[in-house]
Design a protein around this nucleic acid. Structure first.
Lengths: 214, 214
DNA sequence: TAGATTGTTAATCGATTAACAATC
DNA sequence: TAGATTGTTAATCGATTAACAATC
């Protein structure tokens, strides 16, 4: 099977979200056209994306069974198995993520947090213990944690990453605005809020120079 | 001039970050090759991206002047003019953004926050006042705010958006995991942490099914 | 049956990469 | 000068969209 593109992968959660809404409103069948219309996408694109994840084909004239499609997307994205993660860096952003309710239903459970600031140690946030950095390796090993979320300042991100790799982590969700150096078998997803803002900023910049804004 | 692609736009802040680091280490000249190597990108791609933003061409054999390039990227991305923004929804994520130091040097100043929870009103976070929703329209008008950051729960996001549009907002940075309906002259940047996580999750899912992880 | 929707094959579009000539 | 690096033109690659045949 052809390798899925990152574009398709990022659209699937949007389909999922839309389908859930529909399901809750009692809509039992849904067509690619409907989805495309709601999310402002191309109809054929939606169909192709759906064909990646589903074994049960849609029926001409009726479309897809909402619940089946929801379930298949969830399975494909891995929502049905729980990923235990650790979070490093209990600052404001770290705390926000620890408090975020929506992750559980997507299969993300943050099991433990680490921080080098001693005043934060042994606090609990939403039942999640904050431990000292010295515990990272043994705890990750014992709990067989594969995923780490990095919310430390940029300067410390690489250092933390090295420690994580030693501890057997296989995937990193990095919120620090810096490029991490990792071995090829470790997956890094770079979440960079300042990169996102730059896109917004450039757009506003254009408005100003065009005189679009008074 | 050809319209810049979102891909280029998202790479520029990474160049900027790398160039700043180099500048601070006293590196005065930098080549596209160097940047490409450091950020694991294609050399020609870096060169093309740079050509979008710079008027002063690089010199063969020496490359680009670090400081000039930094400055030109900043100008292009709009870091040199301050964008005043309002933030709606002072939950954990909202607070994290209000506390984030890095935005100022990218030209983002969150001037005011709003929340419908009365217990949060009149608090100040980093000198930023939290006001009731009823103040949104008059304040945005008076301060001529063009940018809004939405950190309310999904269910409230569209309602808030409608109010923002009435208040003259021209760009929205949306952290709620829902597709907003807006007029065509309003720019929406969708920041969706659960979409990001889905990419990570699917990757872990693959590892498991491949038996890559013991 | 007619029409809506499906899945597939082909065409288009845009971004990345390769090849190359120009120049400091 | 030779070689590194530039910018540009052409080739490749991949994603999106259009056209169409199949089917409920």
């Amino acid at each position: 099977m052809k390798r899925i593109s990152i574009h398709t992968l990022k659209r699937l959660p949007r389909y999922h979200q839309y389908l859930l809404e529909q399901q809750h409103s009692g809509v039992q069948k849904v067509s690619a056209k409907q989805i495309a219309l709601a999310l402002e996408l191309n109809e054929v694109q939606v169909r192709k994306d759906i064909q990646y994840v589903t074994k049960s084909p849609g029926k001409p004239k009726t479309g897809h069974i909402t619940s089946t499609l929801v379930y298949e997307i969830e399975t494909f994205l891995g929502y049905h198995q729980t990923n235990h993660a650790c979070l490093i860096g209990v600052g404001h952003l770290g705390k926000a993520l620890l408090n975020y309710e929506g992750f559980l239903e997507k299969g993300l459970e943050i099991s433990v947090a680490f921080d080098k600031d001693e005043t934060k140690i042994d606090q609990s946030i939403k039942q999640i213990k904050v431990l000292p950095m010295s515990q990272l390796r043994p705890i990750c090993n014992r709990l067989k944690i594969q995923l780490a979320i990095i919310t430390v300042p940029s300067e410390q991100a690489q250092e933390v990453t090295d420690l994580l790799i030693e501890s057997g982590i296989k995937a990193i969700w990095n919120f620090a605005p810096t490029t991490l150096v990792v071995p090829s078998d470790v997956f890094v997803y770079q979440e960079d809020l300042s990169i996102s803002f730059s896109v917004v900023s450039h757009h506003l910049q254009k408005l100003v120079t065009k005189g679009d804004i008074k």
